[in-house]
Amino acid sequence: MTSCHIAEEHIQKVAIFGGTHGNELTGVFLVKHWLENGAEIQRTGLEVKPFITNPRAVKKCTRYIDCDLNRIFDLENLGKKMSEDLPYEVRRAQEINHLFGPKDSEDSYDIIFDLHNTTSNMGCTLILEDSRNNFLIQMFHYIKTSLAPLPCYVYLIEHPSLKYATTRSIAKYPVGIEVGPQPQGVLRADILDQMRKMIKHALDFIHHFNEGKEFPPCAIEVYKIIEKVDYPRDENGEIAAIIHPNLQDQDWKPLHPGDPMFLTLDGKTIPLGGDCTVYPVFVNEAAYYEKKEAFAKTTKLTLNAKSIRCCLH
């Protein structure tokens, strides 16, 4: 018999989150649709729960009410004593943790798909938090293969000092899905179709896995975050240069030392320094102006996964 890495157990509980950011409308629209008619997301033997994560922000069509829901799922915020004085999103995070967690427990949901849009030209993107997770690498390989020839990129946010504390991190297997470009507060049919297909293929993978299909060893190309880059700023902290036209919409493309990065209003080009080629992502993302992030630098690498098969009882 072929030796293989056996994944822990079959997958039982899956959640699909929309509206973690209330103005990213593809996930909101799909989740609302699936709450009314969820036939397309159901798979035999699998509990799939669509869920609106930040209903107040969705109602106002804004990213958040008090603070970013997708950055506060750490033990400090989840452990705060519940009171009306807490920011709305912290209270909501505790409610979500109660419903789908608790985080880092045996009772937490197996998989959470968190649906997002970006204003950046990132196409279909899967966000991975753990480079050693054979199950998710296999799932992402399946999704990428199923979507081809449509490109699907994998963004690895594993980093020693950049801690995200994402909404989906309460699950055993957290999956971020990011599709763009799409303006905030807008629905685009092409973007919706791409996100819908990503979810379909992900659920198909889980179904095949649960039925005992063995997935042979595989490898995927990923883009691992190195650092986030702020806009150049003046002495008052105001933005002093904008994304250069040569960099705009060039997510995932190589940016070499000396290539144009920013452009000042008086026409001066600010190039990339250093001696390493990087791959920019979230270029000129609207939501990241407040976070002082013009783009993120990534490096390209390959992740390998062992063969996996479900432990059938």
Rank of each mutant, 00 (worst) to 15 (best):
S108H: 11
G38K: 14
T167Q: 14
I199S: 00
A39S: 07
H256W: 06
I52H: 03
I170G: 05
L86R: 13
N121M: 05
I239D: 01
G101M: 06
H98N: 12
V58L: 09
P257M: 04
D249N: 07
K32D: 09
N117C: 10
S120D: 01
F205E: 00
E8C: 10
A57I: 05
G19M: 02
T299N: 11
F100N: 05
R56T: 11
N134M: 13
E290T: 13
C311L: 12
P271W: 06
E36Q: 10
A57G: 11
I16K: 00
S120W: 02
A305V: 04
A148D: 15
S83H: 07
P102Y: 12
G18Y: 03
A241H: 04
V14K: 00
G176Q: 11
L46Q: 02
F73Y: 11
E235Y: 14
V281T: 14
R196M: 01
H244W: 00
R71I: 10
L192F: 08
E290M: 15
P260Q: 04
R92I: 14
R309K: 10
M195S: 12
I6V: 08
T119L: 01
F140Q: 02
D275R: 10
L272E: 04
C152W: 00
K200Y: 08
V48C: 09
L247M: 06
L265A: 14
M195C: 14
A240S: 11
T53K: 04
T167G: 12
K224E: 06
N37C: 13
R233G: 04
D230G: 11
V222Y: 03
I220S: 02
L69C: 07
L192Q: 06
V48D: 01
I225T: 09
E9V: 10
E76R: 07
E129I: 04
G18A: 14
Y223W: 05
V175D: 00
G267I: 03
V283M: 02
L303K: 02
G27N: 01
V31D: 00
Q138R: 01
A148Q: 06
D259S: 08
D130N: 09
F215W: 07
F215I: 06
G267H: 09
L75H: 14
P149D: 06
C218M: 04
H244Y: 02
Q248A: 06
I41Q: 01
G19W: 03
P55V: 07
L263Q: 11
K213D: 12
T302S: 08
A15F: 03
K306C: 07
I270A: 04
N121E: 03
T269K: 15
F51W: 10
I65V: 07
E106T: 08
T20M: 03
E285A: 11
H141M: 03
I191G: 03
P260K: 04
H207P: 02
S169C: 14
C310A: 14
H208L: 13
D130C: 05
N70S: 06
K197D: 12
R92F: 05
L265E: 04
F17P: 02
E76D: 14
L126Y: 00
I112M: 05
I177S: 01
K200A: 11
S169N: 13
D193C: 12
K103Q: 13
G180T: 01
F29T: 14
Y88I: 09
H159P: 14
K172S: 06
F73N: 11
I41C: 06
D114Y: 06
T145I: 13
C4D: 10
G123F: 04
Q12R: 15
P254W: 02
N284G: 14
L192A: 15
L301W: 15
S105Q: 13
Q138E: 01
L301R: 09
Q194C: 14
V278H: 04
P160M: 06
N117L: 03
P245G: 04
C152M: 07
T53C: 06
N246Y: 08
L301S: 10
P280N: 00
N304R: 09
I65C: 09
M198N: 02
P216I: 05
V179P: 02
E9H: 07
A219P: 03
P55T: 15
H207C: 14
A165N: 12
T26W: 01
A296Q: 12
C310Y: 14
L203T: 01
A171C: 09
F73L: 08
F209Q: 00
N70I: 05
Q42T: 10
F100D: 06
D204G: 01
R71A: 08
I65G: 05
Y155E: 06
K268T: 12
I199K: 00
V179Q: 01
H141I: 02
S169L: 05
G19T: 02
N284S: 10
L136S: 03
G176M: 15
D230S: 09
E24R: 02
P87E: 11
G22L: 07
Y109A: 08
G180A: 01
E24Y: 06
H33C: 09
F135Y: 06
A296K: 07
G18E: 03
R91D: 09
P50W: 03
L86H: 07
K197E: 10
P232Y: 03
N133W: 03
P149E: 05
L162G: 08
N236K: 11
R92S: 13
L78A: 14
H313A: 13
E238T: 08
Y155W: 10
D110Q: 14
Y142R: 02
A219E: 15
R56G: 09
K144S: 12
I11M: 14
P55W: 09
L30Y: 03
N210A: 06
E89W: 04
G22W: 13
C4S: 15
H159C: 06
V175I: 06
V229D: 00
I143T: 02
I226T: 15
V31N: 00
I308M: 12
W252F: 13
P87G: 14
N77W: 12
L69M: 13
T277F: 04
D85P: 06
L69W: 07
K81H: 12
D193W: 08
K200W: 08
L303V: 07
P87S: 10
K228Q: 15
H159W: 06
N210D: 04
K13Y: 04
E211Q: 13
P149Y: 04
L187R: 01
G27L: 02
I41Y: 03
H10L: 08
A240H: 09
G123A: 06
F113S: 02
H98K: 12
A202C: 05
N284W: 01
G212T: 02
K291A: 12
H33K: 14
D266S: 14
L303F: 04
F295Q: 00
D190Q: 06
L75W: 13
C67W: 08
A93K: 06
L75F: 14
V175L: 03
D110C: 04
N133L: 03
L35I: 14
G274W: 03
M198H: 00
Y289E: 13
L247R: 03
M82C: 07
V179D: 02
D259T: 05
G185E: 03
N54D: 10
T20G: 07
D251S: 03
F140M: 15
L162F: 15
I127K: 15
P280Q: 02
N70V: 07
T302Y: 11
V58C: 13
A202P: 00
R43F: 04
L86F: 13
I177G: 02
H5C: 10
K80T: 10
K81W: 14
H141R: 06
H201C: 15
I191H: 04
Y289F: 15
E221S: 04
M195W: 02
T145N: 10
N54T: 05
G212V: 00
P149N: 05
I112F: 03
N121S: 08
D104K: 13
G237A: 05
L46M: 13
S120N: 01
Y64A: 08
D193N: 13
K292H: 15
D193E: 09
L128N: 01
T145Q: 09
Y289C: 12
S83G: 10
I170N: 06
K144N: 04
R63I: 04
D190K: 04
R43P: 01
V222A: 14
K49I: 10
P183C: 11
Y155L: 08
T166S: 10
D107A: 15
A305Y: 02
I206Q: 00
A240E: 11
G101W: 05
D193G: 07
E84K: 14
V48Q: 01
I177R: 00
V58M: 07
Y64L: 15
L312C: 14
S131V: 07
S146R: 14
E9A: 12
E293K: 06
T269N: 13
I16M: 05
A171D: 01
G258K: 08
F113Q: 01
K268Q: 09
E293L: 15
F100P: 06
K81F: 13
I127T: 13
V28T: 12
L247Q: 01
Y142A: 04
L136E: 04
T119F: 02
A305M: 03
E158M: 04
N97D: 09
H256M: 10
N133M: 04
E36H: 09
V28K: 12
Q250W: 06
V90E: 10
E40N: 02
P257A: 06
